[in-house]
């Protein structure tokens, strides 16, 4: 962890990749309905995507205070099973937490078999976890 957080806000950077196919199912991004989702169509729906996705993600500091999510930018990330939108964001807490709790509920209500794959890269170490309806929160030791 960097110095400088004493007395200031605490920021963690995040990247959240969501499959365009899944987003199209809930938001119908393919405006012309031709079965080909273009960058133009995705770009026009960026605000919808942000509004929809961030409603299902939350961070809470050890004290129980919610940390704010500050969306930064959206890009496209190719995965083995298709193209994903990559949401870059900052988690902003008013104080440096010892633990940060992540709550994740995207798509669970419409698809209980949906899974979130969480990867935390803390300098040298990488930790992964799977988020599911039965396991929708992770405590991150910072």
């Amino acid at each position: 962890m960097d110095d400088g957080h004493r007395g200031g806000t605490f920021v963690v950077h995040g990247q959240w990749d969501i499959a365009l196919r899944d987003l199209d199912f809930v938001l119908t991004l393919d405006d012309d309905g031709d079965g080909r989702l273009t960058w133009g169509e995705v770009r026009r729906h960026q605000a919808d995507i942000e509004r929809y996705a961030y409603a299902y993600l939350g961070f809470t500091a050890n004290s129980g205070t919610r940390c704010a999510i500050r969306p930064a930018r959206q890009m496209i990330d190719d995965h083995a099973d298709g193209a994903y939108v990559a949401l870059f964001f900052d988690v902003v807490c008013t104080q440096a937490p010892v633990r940060l709790r992540l709550d994740y509920n995207l798509f669970f209500a419409i698809d209980p078999s949906h899974r979130g794959i969480f990867v935390m890269n803390n300098g040298a170490s990488v930790a992964t976890a799977v988020l599911s309806p039965q396991n929708a929160a992770i405590d991150l030791a910072l």
Binding site: H5, H13, Q15, D17, A19, L102, I117, L142
Partner: peptide
């Protein structure tokens, strides 16, 4: 504070 923590979700 810009911490080194970096969260990545490949939300599968």
């Amino acid at each position: 504070c810009r911490s080194r923590q970096y969260l990545a979700f490949a939300l599968a």
